[in-house]
Simulated assay, not measured.
Amino acid sequence: MAELKSAMEEHMELMADLVQKLSSELRSGLRPAYENFIGFFHAIDWKEPWLMGLGAFHVVLLLVVFISRRNTNFQMFLFLLTLAGVYFAENLNTFLRKNWGSFSGQNYFDPSGVFMSVLWSGPLLVNAMIILINTLFSLCYMIVKWKRAELRHRARAASSKQD
């Protein structure tokens, strides 16, 4: 019984410590995350041509996603292409880490792939989510259209039987 009581007290102390840490983090707010983001943003030389090209690529891809929103087959191609880009991001990061000197002023390609995740995979995933949401809306519209056609067909069939 004493072991159970000590285990419960130990558990309560652990829970109190976790609650205290959580409340102190909540009191600090988003300030540390904001400071980390600003530090990350300022560590990058945005005037490098390849970074401007990467940004232009993502903007053009986003425009293509919006312009082609009515073409479901092309959207599925883009969806698979963006997901393939995310899938191969680790291999691309490894390749770029080995060859960064030929195109960049500094090595952004750390072994954990933070830079690639933020500036390559992040925008690709946003595009993939936009395509997915658009496809779901298109499918919902198609289901409604199909159901209306089915109801019209049934109404015509019922009215022809009555005649």
Rank of each mutant, 00 (worst) to 15 (best):
M1V: 12
A2N: 15
E3K: 04
E3I: 07
E3A: 10
K5N: 07
S6N: 03
E9I: 11
E10Y: 05
E10F: 04
E10W: 03
H11V: 11
M15I: 06
D17Y: 10
D17K: 13
D17W: 12
L18H: 11
L22I: 15
S24C: 07
L26D: 01
R27V: 04
S28Q: 13
R31C: 09
P32E: 02
Y34D: 06
Y34S: 08
E35W: 03
N36S: 13
I38F: 08
I38S: 10
I44N: 00
D45K: 02
W46A: 06
W46F: 01
K47T: 11
K47H: 04
K47P: 01
W50Q: 05
W50V: 06
L51K: 01
M52E: 07
G53M: 14
G53S: 12
L54T: 02
G55L: 11
F57E: 00
H58N: 03
V60H: 06
L61M: 15
L61V: 08
L62S: 10
L63G: 07
L63D: 00
L63K: 03
V64R: 02
V65N: 00
V65P: 01
I67R: 08
S68H: 02
R69L: 04
R70S: 15
R70H: 13
R70Q: 09
T72C: 05
T72F: 03
T72V: 13
N73P: 08
Q75P: 00
M76N: 13
F77P: 03
L78I: 05
L80Q: 09
T82G: 14
L83W: 06
L83S: 00
A84F: 13
V86C: 04
Y87S: 12
F88R: 07
A89E: 04
N91S: 13
N93T: 04
F95P: 02
L96T: 07
L96G: 06
L96N: 00
K98W: 06
N99M: 06
N99C: 02
G101F: 12
G101P: 00
G101R: 14
G101V: 13
S104T: 04
P111G: 10
S112Y: 05
V114F: 11
V114H: 02
F115Y: 09
S117C: 14
S117K: 10
V118R: 00
L119W: 09
W120P: 00
S121E: 08
S121V: 07
N127C: 12
N127R: 10
M129F: 14
I130E: 05
I130V: 13
I130Q: 01
N134W: 07
T135D: 00
F137V: 09
F137N: 00
S138Q: 11
C140R: 11
Y141D: 11
M142H: 04
I143F: 10
I143V: 14
I143Y: 12
K147G: 02
K147I: 08
R148A: 06
A149F: 14
E150D: 03
R152W: 04
H153R: 09
R154M: 15
A155V: 09
R156Y: 03
A158D: 11
S160T: 09
K161W: 11
Q162R: 14
D163Y: 14
D163I: 15
